[in-house]
Design a protein around this nucleic acid. Sequence first.
DNA 1: ATGATACTTCGATGATAGACGAATAATATG
DNA 2: CATATTATTCGTCTATCATCGAAGTATCAT
Lengths: 238, 238
Amino acid sequence: MDAAPNISEVAALIADPSRGTMLTTLLGGQTLLASELARTAGVTPQTASAHLAKMVDGGLILSESHGRNRYFRLASPEVAHVLEALSIVAKPTKVRSLRQSKQTRALHFARTCYDHLAGEVGVALTSKMLEFEWLMSEGKNFAITDRGADGLLAIGVDMRRIPTGRRALARQCLDWSERRYHVAGLLGAAITNRFFELGWIGQKASTRAIEVTKAGAQGLSKNFDIRVDALKSQSETM
Amino acid sequence: MDAAPNISEVAALIADPSRGTMLTTLLGGQTLLASELARTAGVTPQTASAHLAKMVDGGLILSESHGRNRYFRLASPEVAHVLEALSIVAKPTKVRSLRQSKQTRALHFARTCYDHLAGEVGVALTSKMLEFEWLMSEGKNFAITDRGADGLLAIGVDMRRIPTGRRALARQCLDWSERRYHVAGLLGAAITNRFFELGWIGQKASTRAIEVTKAGAQGLSKNFDIRVDALKSQSETM
DNA sequence: ATGATACTTCGATGATAGACGAATAATATG
DNA sequence: CATATTATTCGTCTATCATCGAAGTATCAT
């Protein structure tokens, strides 16, 4: 029989700053190389290797070997959920360098949160979908209206083709930077995927930061009445 | 401007086994003394004092002094949420002693999860309310039907008197022992409170384990068609 | 084959922090 | 006031673990 779960064991895996940075990077939803994760954490490959082994062993991440490369990704949405929950409780660190400030601004502007959009763009998108009554707030989830289903279909997100499973359809995920909700769950992932397909957004390797392309700015303006440059300037004046 | 949140810092606070035990105990929703927490963690008062100071400083718990006593409780539902999320990911520890086995069985049978019922009793209650169509599953939440509101009113839980706020009304909370959902959120708390008021359940100090009284067994049988002893025997045969 | 790249293993080092004993402070009880 | 109880502070000891250099293995490129 199982006793109470040992939360400290998992927490200890996240508690190391190098591992924390790796996990936060992987929360971008990407599958990354050991060397890339070593670089983002600022440690040597040996050190990174030890960290990654521990996290694989602890069930936080999964690895896949291709030739001499080894790829890592988060093990499950549950792990992502832990990282999100910690992000809410964690107090934000103060920005030190100009370089860091740039990165920070990019993260606040738009980023992936496991597999869906977060940051100003993610929150603006969610806010507009509520305003258009595509979504309705329903407790800790969103309900999708008929109008919403139509609207989403128009940009190529077909709700009927989203597989139903254990995972929530449209969860309200609290954004740590905006302190407002954005759409997570299957719908959040589907929309984000479609935006990638359409070339509206792009992501550099080993960053959570998302860039909105010209086509994306047009698409967001036309379909969602979102002025991307207005968001950007707002974040720059902060 | 704020940079990315430092999740490792928070995780480090939970990563220590003594602190983990204290937090898990406080997840029972109780307000406990420093000495009680020292005992549950199995450390001396000095050591506990240092741990508690760190957790207060880190924003995980709040303290309140009454005379020479100092009481501690979890700082927020957000912190409870982190602990729950960690419980799901953490692998269960194996039971070693007979004493531990008893405690474990008690925890599996019924416990408080921050401020609502969990364990076999919590899951059974939720399951019955779904069966009776008092609740409807709705994504990651429950919706309360009119029939449900009536039924709850009959045992003294008045939905109209539950304050609406940021907190979800009836969240689906994944039970780490049963791996099924139980009712959390404001409704979960209201029901649990009422059960305490009715004397249906009781809790020993500094334990998360809940005992169902004779009155409770009758009440649960009459109102929810739950046979408490059937649950108990089931857990004993495991 | 030969060298280059990606990752891992091993061993040594150094820093961190958790533990307790002893002593102190604050409050309650009689 | 004296004494017991509760909690904290300080100093010391010890164990753990993150880190890296050096060396080793596996794969790719030419």
